[in-house]
Write a protein that binds this DNA or RNA. Structure first.
Lengths: 193, 193, 193, 193
DNA sequence: CACTAATCGAGACGGTACGTCTCGTCTTCGC
DNA sequence: GCGAAGACGAGACGTACCGTCTCGATTAGTG
């Protein structure tokens, strides 16, 4: 990702143009068809200006996405744990169903062969969000709503694993309406009673 | 994917050589660094021979992997559901921790931008395996061990989602030893009792 | 220069197209403005096809020029040495006054910083032509028309040095009509009688 | 070329540093490898400072060379014409055999595609020197030592043409020891007696 | 002596071309 | 007559410089 470009420099205008152009192209042509060259051209910018601040098109798009989705928000805390979980996972699914979801898939794909990108993905996206979730879940554990013997990190994986499974493997569409049920399965288990 | 080459031809020898070379290269250099050209050279084969039977290096590697891991096996049925689930998911994790796991990540990555490959992945890998799982889970539902109100397809996702989450997002290593606990969480739920 | 591309290969058509496009572009835009990229585009050819057979645009244009001016011809031998020298140097000047002269200047310019090109220039152009001249001059020495104590190599330089001086330094236009006088100066010397 | 920068300004220091850095880099890396950027860095100067006074690296190096070789000196006049000619051309060859000769070749090369540079080369170098030579040769004509029917401009070309021929075409090394003989050929002609 | 205006270094900027790489197709020649 | 070998058109890669354009941070000379 960009190493904090001095915002005083002329780059500011270019910076924005690059992020916007990258997203626009990714939406129009698909993540894989985007090239650094095309971004530069669409942004009215020299290629070197992109390479000066980012390592790859993936780094550009990651920043663009982080830029658009904002920082990790605190998970809702309405007092009703099940509803909070459902609300938040539903929001994620809705996001994944927009064109940004396709870009997100592309980024995760690239991260499989780009260690640096993978690291950026984790530190700039997954870790802050997971941390927020862990706060919320820790509170629920303290409140006696959740088992204390399950690591909250694992709970997060149980919650989102199935979402990413569908996102990346395409075995079934992401259905935001199924979240309530899914949260129920998770909280109450699959064992017959 | 390849349509059964005439086994009389020298193609047979080439076919094997291609699959082997592809896997070897992928293990040695990493999935992303493999090129059709390199496979052809390593297999002592013309590029055209590869393109005659496969669409891309991904198709080659998918066949090679299917070739090595064999067809979808029936999920074990020892009578103890929890153990069966743990045993089987543990086997998957062990596989993902070998070099073949890396190839698998590469294939899933490519599938994000290659619809045909994604389709092949599903039909040749996920669907048969999911079907086997569903058989086992259906039996458990019938036996009154699992809730009847949860689609077995969803159960499969709940079981494997977290595994693929770690495989593809790298937020934590795949630990085969944690499977028993994870099956417990799934069967009994996260809610405090 | 090309290392004898097998003329049976498909390259033949491309080979011609490249040489022609290069010359055309050099004439239209000037030698310095020609780029490998532009040649490729104008010839309807991939860049790699040019780099496969030549090291640089200079190598392409050298071959194109050699191709157009043909191999080194024997210097005329009418029996009148002075006339023969004048005729032949005049022909060189006339050539240098065509657009090919401009290309020739560009090649010599590039050769100043490209050892390989310089070598090619010498072996493919200067040496064969100088050899022809030396044959003719040797004959004249034997015939008692020229001093025997002057190396013919030096004579060639005395003859063409001033031509290249004007071509490359531009201190005066190349005037083909002055050749007869110049040959006189050379044969009879500048000393007052 | 630079129009005399105000010597009061810090420019002066920069001016010198630029000329020195340019020559040093040209000697170290070869004329063609020198870039304005590298000169600026080596001189501890902003690029713009170079472009403020010169059009190109060639202009810088031309001034640096003129700066180092001094203004055109009057050709020696010892009374012995042949010796004077040999002495002076010998000095030129010796200069061309130093690293400055390589820079000189580079400048002439660039001048083939840079009209402005070519003009500067002529006015700042060739014309003053040719003028000096013409003075000396005119005197010799008047003294009855040289033919009156040969333009002195032409004589200069006959004298230096072969030197530049070797310098630029590299067909043979510049041998300062051969000058006496060469002057003999020129004065007495190549015709057998 | 403080202040203003010019000039400096530094280097980012929009561009162009480089020479390399890989793609998927096409062609040739040897076995 | 099949298939290895590899040339082909295409086009993106990441780099190097170009010549122009901000930026502050020194100066220099003026008030």
């Amino acid at each position: 990702m960009a190493q904090a470009p001095n915002p005083d420099l002329r780059s500011l205008r270019s910076h924005r143009a690059i992020l916007d152009a990258a997203v626009e192209l990714a939406i129009r042509d698909g993540y894989a068809k985007v090239t650094v060259e095309a971004i530069a051209q669409a942004a009215g910018v020299g290629k070197q200006t992109i390479y000066r601040w980012w390592h790859s098109k993936a780094a550009v798009l990651l920043e663009a996405l982080n830029d658009r989705t904002g920082p990790a928000a605190r998970v809702p805390d309405t007092g009703d744990l099940a509803t909070d979980l459902a609300t938040a996972t539903r929001a994620v699914m809705l996001l994944f169903n927009t064109p940004l979801g396709t870009i997100w898939r592309g980024l995760i794909a690239d991260a499989q062969s780009d260690t640096r990108l993978a690291e950026n993905l984790r530190t700039s996206f997954f870790e802050p969000r997971t941390a927020r979730w862990q706060e919320r879940l820790d509170a629920a554990v303290t409140a006696g709503e959740l088992r204390a013997d399950v690591p909250t990190q694992t709970m997060v994986e149980l919650l989102f694993g199935p979402v990413y499974y569908r996102l990346l493997l395409g075995t079934a569409p992401l259905d935001p309406d199924g979240t309530t049920a899914r949260v129920d399965y998770l909280l109450n288990g699959l064992r017959a009673r």
